[in-house]
Design a protein around this nucleic acid. Structure first.
Lengths: 238, 238
DNA sequence: CGGACCATTGATAATTGTCAAAATTCGTGG
DNA sequence: CCACGAATTTTGACAATTATCAATGGTCCG
């Protein structure tokens, strides 16, 4: 039986059930952590964390999504991550005294669960299995960043566009009759800032994919992938 | 007092003294780890790790340097990191069953220290303080990668060239009368593969910097920085 | 001294960014 | 449910940057 969360947000489900790093804990431990967790909601566009400022909590996405970004010297926004349900951030600043290395902003109405610095540290000291999960997850994230880096080095923008569509398809896609429907977490401008190219270039590339019959643009916030294999070729998946 | 390492490579110094993740350990703990470490040497161009293969060890650079890279789908080599003394890699694959996410090759004659997967895991389980240090160090690395990503997002190649010169100056530079002398770890082609641009573009940009009096090309393997401040402006350092 | 390798330079083509304008989509309030 | 204004996206024309190809010039090392 699943115990109820007393936070008023989670209804019958503990928020932390959604977080992979806690998946190895038993019900009792989960409840113990749940009681330590505080909650907060943000509107679309609200700032959760600001580059350079101190942060004293690990933040877990409970519902909605958020972007992590930095500003380049020429004033453009470079998106580093798109966080979805179950992702977490802020862990870099919990163990060192470092300030945040990026800003985080809600892409939609957002619900978060937060664990304070001291609570988090105690948790790790008591559970080396959680520490291992976190190290593993950080490794995953590094691997993703390394791939992205490699992608940025690819001169060809087509590859990057294909890559981001596949990434989003895996994370935000649902199978439908004709293919995979993606609920885009980012606007075209957001995609451009994620890929490090101009807004207009994203439009043109997507337009080209549409005339090639690979995708269909349903509306500004969703795309239907008709030919996933062609996208794989474009992205250069082996 | 510093205990001697019995490996025959480190002389009076433990290799692991060079590794940030072990920096918080006391002498006794360090010696315990040191006894588990094995060593190996590589010639220039030799492969230490191959993308996609299993790796069973964390590898620490004891002497020399190495490049970590992936091949893009169009067959180009994209360099992700240039590892110098004290840097380590392979940690992503220790806790998960993931295969290596990049290849690593010696840029010069190289000496390494290695810790096996099982030894590393035991270490973490036994020492939650080490786990915390590792999480912290991974956080540092992620911050570096995130910065690099932001740099790649800058459309302007001049910035990247300035950035790589400053990076190398900090890592491989020595102060001389006229400025900072860099012993380049990479050829022009290597620099191009690090920046994700064509060989020829690197030549042109460096040539331009030379006519502007910012650098002087001493020979193919070393560059003298005459005006570091101008480079900072170019790289967009705040 | 010679040969192999690496780097530079020039000319041209291809790609992408930029600016401006038009078209579409979205959200709100009636 | 529709209409309107604001925001976002698309499209076009052009400029700027960089890749590519080819040839030349340098450098290192036996």
């Amino acid at each position: 039986m699943i115990a109820s969360c007393h936070c008023g947000h989670c209804q019958d489900d503990l928020c932390i059930h959604k977080v992979p790093i806690f998946s190895s804990l038993n019900q009792e431990e989960l409840e113990e952590i749940a009681s330590l967790i505080s909650h907060r909601e943000y509107k679309k566009g609200e700032r959760i964390l600001t580059d350079g400022e101190k942060s004293e909590a690990i933040v877990i996405i409970h519902e909605g999504s958020a972007k992590a970004f930095k500003y380049t010297t020429d004033g453009r926004e470079q998106i580093l991550y798109v966080f979805a349900e179950g992702d977490f951030f802020g862990e870099q600043n919990l163990l060192s005294d470092r300030t945040a290395t990026y800003s985080v902003e809600a892409l939609q109405p957002l619900k978060t669960c937060m664990l304070s610095k001291t609570q988090f540290q105690q948790l790790i000291i008591g559970h080396s299995d959680i520490a291992i999960k976190i190290i593993t997850e950080l490794g995953n994230r590094m691997a993703r960043l390394e791939n992205a880096m490699q992608g940025m080095g690819v001169r060809n923008v087509d590859n990057r566009v294909g890559g981001i569509l596949l990434e989003f398809a895996a994370k935000y896609g649902s199978k439908v009759q004709e293919g995979t429907l993606i609920q885009l977490p980012l606007s075209r401008e957001g995609i451009a800032n994620y890929l490090g190219v101009a807004r207009e270039t994203v439009s043109r590339k997507l337009g080209q994919l549409e005339s090639d019959g690979v995708i269909r643009s349903v509306n500004n916030k969703s795309i239907l992938i008709l030919n996933q294999e062609a996208l794989g070729v474009l992205a250069g998946v082996n």
